[in-house]
Amino acid sequence: MADERKLILETKDMSIHFGGLIAVNSFSLKVYEHEIVAIIGPNGAGKTTAFNMITGVYTPTEGEIFLDGQKINGIRPDILTSHGMARTFQNIRLFKNLTVLDNVLIGHHVHKEAGFFSTVLQLPKAAKEEEEMRKHSLELLEFVGLLEYKDEIASNLPYGLQRRLEIARALATRPKLLLLDEPAAGMNPTETEALTEFIHEIREKLNMTILLIEHHMQLVMDISDRIYVLEYGKEIAHGVPKEIQSNPKVIKAYLGEEDDE
């Protein structure tokens, strides 16, 4: 591991207990700049719980989380977003009744500097900010290939494009770290392939660091630089895709039961 790279996200012995249940046990993770890291594991392994701790939805019972060197335990999700962390959801959570453009514009609101009254009164500075927001949103929509749908209501988009829009909305907050919660869930093979390409493109063109949870093995193996494997809340392996594929523990826990998965 090239340790001289900049560490974007680090968790140290992160654990969470729900009553007597230990959902995630002493999980340590490192994500370096420009890396794509995946967390995999069987259902109920604690992947989403780990994700929720990183994004501030839950506060870890023990351990520490650092974003870009800053400790972020228990900080509210909206503040984390303003510090450069953006996420998508396992079950798409778009602003369904708003247009595609509005969805992306809302992602920009976090960096708005003008106050409420100067914005509503359209004072020059606020108006300029609003205009820049719009311009940047349109650029972003062009990048993700949704520009032609900008005036559509978000829920009218086909599933694959809704995923794309959710990622675009997250990118609008100008994150340092993008977290994707099962981005390929419910996608057909063609859509998954397009998504794989899309995630690569985000990393290359926007110089993004990405942490993702995924069930779809093909996608994970194609895309990830490193993989962490969780089982019953504990890390059982981590390494590059090749190592993970041949790790007997992982095969036993995850891949062993079904040959094709």
Partner: peptide
């Protein structure tokens, strides 16, 4: 006018989905 500005959209996003709105950085 307000509903066309960023603050108006932020209010709408809360109506649409609070969890997502907070994840998008809306207090």
């Amino acid at each position: 006018v307000m509903m066309k500005t960023s603050y108006g959209r932020a209010l709408l996003s809360i109506r649409e989905d609070e969890v997502a709105a907070q994840a998008m950085g809306i207090n």
